[in-house]
Design a binder for these strands. Structure first.
Length: 830
RNA sequence: GCCGGGCUGGUGGAAUGGUAGACACACGGGACUUAAAAUCCCGAGGGCGUAAAGUCCGUGAGGGUUCAAAUCCCUCGUCCGGCACCA
């Protein structure tokens, strides 16, 4: 008869709830541990990826609690966002209702899994008591001068009907729906995350040692620092000084053209100074380029298009006239939106020049003595080499030349050292309804005016009908739009755009520290105590999104004195995907497994055990119904042993026999097994976060207990010790069944409050060890020897074994390597 | 193209310089049973060998360092991931 998991799990969930045992309190006298999981979007139901994420977190939270830490562990819902609007249209409901009912359902699912959350701390971002503080923080950023509006070509997704931040464009498409992103000129709200680019970069090295290397590299690439110089070209005809950024100032003598992005401000000036016919051609070129999607335009393999203007810039070093082109491959938002074209040493410029027949002048030759010829080169020479065709600098090595030439250029006022970042300012506006209203109003008299803090929150009207994708119902709500100017009291209009939902998720962990605070986003003393997060767990897909934004928030909040930590997440664990039939589980592939059904069939403990045992957390995990059965079978095996032997085990629970009082070798072996299990499981959970091997050790302990067929009193006492340790160590993984069996054995206290066992050194000592005998590195025999034998004695003892003697016959022993308690390797000749 | 991470039995995976394959799944055998399921026990990398003994091979391929390499180094293959016209 399999154990009755349904009733047992419900029983213990009720007990935990009634006893408030997972509620934590700010208490500086205790050592804290903040265990955080990426909170879910309430899409309707939990999927296996969530179950995996939260099962990992719960093991750590329960383990650390048992180890005396004051653990903060809770959950919330990242509940603003577009799917609610789409669902509202599809199901003829309101985003608000759809979202809250999803939250209710998913909360039930989470509770059914037995996660040890402090539910009082839950944060739901779509409620005014949360998003009020989004608005408040946004205003603090505005006060600090890092929030601004600008009109710029921004990423536009036509399917979602909204703009996107740079981080939300994946391979030229929208991160949610994949629609190719186009550029659109719009006036939008931005946050100057670029002010923090250097610090975001520096702190990766300095403080993120507890993060996977992969994520650190991804962020480093994303921030994309490059060092170089800024130089300028005078354009006498237009009375303009055109600036360009380069990382290769050493190739400055190789400039044969200048290229501008079609969006560059100079383009308009040029048109004004051109004859009507040419100006018309230029306009046509610019609109051709702007009609290209960002994939067509900015993919590495995309065709380069150019337009030759009648203007020239003056080379800052040689004074020569350099023709100015407009080219589709120049990006307006990197550097200055203009480049010095050096076709001999830049493949893009090379391709462009070959196409438009622009001269190519090599100024670096390969170190092997080859002399390049611009007319016959087949590709750009981008490696380091020796400078040529560059007057005084000829003969220098590239690495020296870059430095020397910039030094010289700075002295001569030709260039200026500069650092550029790939990271762009964070575009925060969204043309959506279901998000945090941006707390600004537009007044004809006073302009753009922030909503005063005492008037927050700017409430999002909930009783609306979303009619079509991409059209915010706020635009049809005069009672929302029409307001009075906080400045002059005259009529004004509210900002109808809402915030990127990544704003909500950039500080929710601070809110967890001070739930329900209505005076501030959080209480400083709470956050000072709990933050930073000691262990963060979530998917790798947020490496360059949420994890950058949240780091930026941390630095900003510290700068305005609200917090004192500069990095929010000390350690990060990125769990792999849950795979079925070789592909990521997804609705569109129809290969999902419903957690609720699985829990109904096997119980939460089984699902948790399976998902933690099947693979180490950072690997992808292949779903296997058979292995779920296997996990279930193991729990039944544990249950059966304890239940069938409950009387004997109970009768022997009043003492622990120390190792030195045990004579029988089988019993000594079990005693040792108990303590090596404690040692290894502790190490695997805390140091390695390798739960699959921790569970394997517990399975071994169960096998060892089953294997001991000895009904002496000492044997039962030991088996009782083994079972107590087993239940305690298994409880973070499978909390319900272990509580029930713990109680069955007569324990009064709840197991979740019981201290983690500690391994007793004396019980870890081995009586005898297997010594591997090798000859020339090959295993030739294994011999039992007492542990701790002295090196020379061990060597003598193994060498004198008949089997070894036979093999040494007729050979010369060259040398013997002995590793105490492990092996003897005899090196022979002949 | 650049950067990073993998590659170990039929399968998921152990082992981070010292007995390769822990633990589990699947499989085979046995016990129990009228039978089956469940359970308990046993076996198992591959080759040669009836078997035992033995012996050889074996961690993507090849080379190197070492008494000793899945583990360290070099070259290559392959798969996955990230970035990619960022001047």
């Amino acid at each position: 008869m399999p154990y009755d998991f349904a009733n047992i799990e419900q029983k213990w969930q009720e007990r935990w709830n009634e006893s408030h045992c997972f509620e934590s309190h700010t208490d500086p006298s205790k050592e804290k541990f903040f265990c955080l999981e990426m909170f879910p979007y309430p899409s309707g139901a939990l999927h296996m990826g969530h179950i995996r994420n939260y099962s990992i977190g719960d093991v750590l939270a329960r383990f650390l609690r048992k180890n005396g830490k004051n653990v903060l562990y809770t959950i919330g819902f990242d509940s603003f966002g577009m799917p609610a609007e789409n669902a509202a249209i599809k199901y003829k409901t309101r985003p608000h209702d759809w979202t809250l009912s999803n939250i209710a359902y998913m909360t039930e699912q989470l509770k059914r899994m037995g996660y040890s959350y402090d539910w009082r701390r839950e944060a739901i971002t779509c409620l005014p008591e949360y998003y009020k503080w989004n608005q408040w923080i946004f205003l603090q950023m505005y006060k600090k001068g890092i929030v601004f509006q600008k009109e710029a070509p921004v990423n536009w997704c036509s399917t979602c009907g909204t703009v996107l931040a740079n981080e939300q464009v994946v391979e030229g498409g929208c991160w949610r729906c994949g629609t190719p992103v186009t550029k659109k000129n719009l006036k939008q709200w931005f946050i100057k995350i670029t002010d923090y680019a250097q610090e975001l970069l520096d702190d990766i090295e300095k403080d993120l040692g507890g993060w996977p290397r992969r994520v650190r590299i991804m962020q480093t690439n994303w921030i994309g620092r490059s060092e170089g110089a800024r130089l300028s070209f005078k354009i006498p005809e237009l009375n303009y000084e055109l600036e360009a950024f380069t990382t290769r100032f050493d190739t400055v003598y190789g400039i044969t053209f200048i290229a501008l992005a079609p969006e560059h401000e100079l383009v308009k000036r040029m048109k004004d100074s051109m004859n009507a016919e040419d100006a018309q051609k230029l306009s046509e070129f610019v609109s051709l380029v702007s009609s290209q999607s960002s994939i067509e335009r900015s993919d590495a393999g995309a065709e380069k298009l150019g337009f030759k203007t009648p203007f020239y810039g003056i080379h800052p070093v040689t004074g020569k006239k350099i023709p100015i082109w407009i080219a589709n491959y120049i990006l307006i938002d990197y550097g200055t939106g203009a480049i010095m074209g050096v076709p001999a040493h830049d493949q893009r410029d090379f391709d462009f020049c070959r196409k438009y027949d622009i001269p190519i002048i090599p100024v670096i030759n390969p170190s092997d003595g080859t002399v390049l010829d611009g007319s016959t080169m087949t590709h750009a020479f981008e490696e380091d080499g020796i400078v040529c065709n560059s007057e005084n600098f000829n003969g220098m090595k590239t690495s020296d030349a870059i430095k020397a030439m910039i030094d010289w250029g700075e002295k001569e006022n030709i260039c200026k050292r500069e650092v550029n970042f790939k990271l762009r300012d964070w575009l925060i506006s969204r043309q959506r309804y279901w998000g945090t209203p941006i707390p600004f109003v537009y007044c004809d008299k006073c302009g753009v005016v922030p909503v005063p803090e005492d008037q927050l929150p700017v409430r999002l009207p909930e009783d609306v009908e979303v009619k079509e994708v991409g059209h915010s119902p706020l635009l049809d709500l005069p009672e929302f739009l029409n307001t009075t100017c906080p400045h002059c009291g005259g009529p004004a209009r509210r900002e109808a755009d809402t915030m990127d939902t990544f704003f909500c998720s950039s500080w929710y962990f601070d809110r967890y520290c001070s739930p329900g605070d209505d005076k501030a986003p959080f209480e400083k003393s709470d956050v000072d105590y709990w933050m930073p997060v000691d262990q963060y767990i979530g998917g790798i897909e947020h490496a360059c999104l949420h994890l950058i934004y949240a780091r930026f928030f941390a630095k900003f909040l510290t700068d305005i004195g609200l917090t004192k930590y500069r990095e929010p997440f000390t350690r990060l664990l990125t769990q792999g995907m849950v795979i079925k039939d070789g592909a990521k589980m997804s609705k569109s592939l129809g290969n999902t497994v419903d957690p609720t059904e699985m829990v109904k069939k096997y119980g939460a403990d089984t699902i948790r055990l399976f998902i933690l045992f099947a693979a180490p957390p950072n690997n992808d995990l292949e779903w296997s119904d058979r292995n779920v059965e296997g996990a279930h079978r193991f729990l039944n095996r544990v249950w059966r042993y304890v239940e069938e032997n409950a009387e004997a085990l109970k009768a022997h629970g009043d003492k622990i026999i120390p190792m030195n009082a045990i004579k029988d070798s089988k019993l000594r072996e079990l005693k040792r097994k108990i303590h090596t299990t404690i040692r290894d499981v502790t190490h695997d959970i805390y140091d390695e976060k390798q739960f699959n091997t921790a569970i394997a050790r517990l399975m071994e302990l169960v096998n060892a207990v089953y294997a001991l067929n000895d009904s002496s009193a000492d044997s039962w006492t030991l088996k009782r010790e083994a079972v107590d340790v087993l239940l305690n160590c298994l409880s973070p993984f499978c909390p319900h069944i272990t509580e029930e069996l713990w109680q069955m054995l007569g324990h009064q206290n709840m197991l979740c409050l019981e201290a983690w066992p500690s391994a007793d050194d004396e019980s870890l000592v081995k009586d005898s060890v297997t010594i591997v005998a090798q000859i020339n590195g090959k295993v030739r025999g294994k011999f039992e020897r007492p542990a701790g034998m002295e090196k020379s004695e061990l060597e003598r003892s193994i060498m004198s074994e008949k089997m070894i003697q036979d093999r040494l016959m007729g050979h010369e022993v060259v040398k013997v390597i002995t590793v105490p308690d492990k092996l003897v390797n005899i090196v022979i000749k002949g």
